[in-house]
Simulated assay, not measured.
Amino acid sequence: MKIVTIIGARPQIIKAAALSRAIKNHFQQQIEEILVHTGQHYDANMSEVFFTELQIPKPHYNLGVGSGKHGEQTAKMISGIENILLEENPQAIVLYGDTNSTLAAAIAASKIHIPVVHIEAGLRSYNKSMPEEINRIMCDHVSTLLFSPTATGFNNLLKEGFKKDQNPPFSANHPKIVHCGDVMYDNSLYFSELAKTNSKILEKYNIQHNDFVLGTIHRDHNTDDSQRLAAIFEALLEIAKDQMIVLPLHPRTAKKMKEMLQDALLEEIENQENLLLIPPVSFLDMVMLESAASLI
């Protein structure tokens, strides 16, 4: 059996590690996995290091689409993925989460009748102003196999008309939904011990156990609104008066800070020693930071 796995954003690379590991260890003779990287996250620290650190095979294809407006980025990915699917002719395509890579692959595969397997199906924010909500709904409704990490997600699918007890053969018109648990939990268990021995992130930045708050900022409704972004950093500066904050900085957030924030606020952020802004970290380093933080 041949499957094509689509990844593009950093979380998808991490999630794919669990399935790739299971295929390698238990189904190597039965399943051939073709890995396709759309290039949605193109920064080396945001992507390439994960293949090495998580021991994921290097992608067979990289579309290299990079950043862009939603329509432009998604269109490039649909075209590139369709060509690969026609070349490889897999029995199924495996998709993760709710990114533009997910949406593009779901459209490309469903149009040429290749079964879609959606991992993390059924998750809903019920806020359609979020691009991710549109992506996940559209992907679910063209999928053949839908694997939900939570009971809530499974019930969301039932509310949308999916049937609980379908019998094979399955198809986009007759899909199967499963409450399977979270692949990220599998990864956390697997890599937590590895992080303790291999990660040097605490030593690198002289961070003390249980003596810092860990945060991230990357959602566009936070980064693309100057007032909201300023309010977030003003709150962080207030907290930093009494508590060390460690903030691995998404490249997009760093760019938006320079564009959106006033010079006086940027200077205050730069001069606050208790607000530690660091480049994006690897998955193992993030696991280490999470385990050592007093608050996330």
Rank of each mutant, 00 (worst) to 15 (best):
E88Y: 05
D211K: 15
N25S: 14
S20W: 00
E132H: 14
A109P: 05
E203K: 08
T52K: 14
I112S: 09
Q272A: 12
G181C: 08
V213D: 00
F233A: 03
T38L: 04
T152H: 12
S20H: 11
F170Y: 15
Q272H: 12
V36A: 05
D224M: 10
I245P: 00
D186Y: 12
H250W: 12
L123G: 03
G215F: 01
L86I: 14
G8Q: 03
A292T: 06
E234H: 08
M46H: 11
E203G: 10
I7Q: 05
I134E: 03
F283K: 01
L277G: 02
L261D: 01
L284D: 01
V94S: 04
G122N: 01
Q55C: 06
I119F: 12
A121T: 03
K196P: 00
T102S: 02
R10T: 06
E72Y: 13
F191I: 06
I13H: 00
G80E: 11
S125L: 13
P248V: 11
F27C: 07
V178W: 04
N206I: 08
T197Y: 04
E53P: 07
G71E: 04
K176M: 13
N167H: 08
V4T: 03
I296F: 15
P11E: 11
I239M: 10
Q12P: 10
E234I: 07
R136L: 04
I23T: 06
I78S: 08
D186L: 11
K111G: 00
L275G: 00
S226F: 09
F50V: 02
A105R: 00
A235T: 08
S226T: 10
L35V: 14
E132P: 01
N187Y: 06
E273P: 00
A195R: 10
D242L: 09
A121C: 11
E33S: 12
N206V: 06
H209M: 02
P279G: 09
K163D: 05
Q40T: 09
N210W: 05
L189K: 12
H174I: 01
I14S: 00
I207Y: 05
I6Y: 05
L295Q: 15
R124Y: 08
L158Y: 00
Q91C: 11
F170E: 08
A264R: 13
V4Q: 01
E193W: 03
I107M: 07
A151M: 13
K164F: 07
N25Y: 07
A108M: 07
I201M: 01
K76H: 09
L19G: 03
S148M: 10
L247Q: 06
L214I: 05
A254Q: 13
T144P: 02
A264E: 15
M130I: 14
N155V: 10
Q227C: 04
T197R: 11
L19E: 06
G161Y: 12
G122Q: 03
H70L: 13
G161M: 12
Q166C: 05
F233P: 01
H141N: 14
Y42A: 13
I137M: 08
A16G: 05
T99L: 02
L86Y: 09
Q91Y: 12
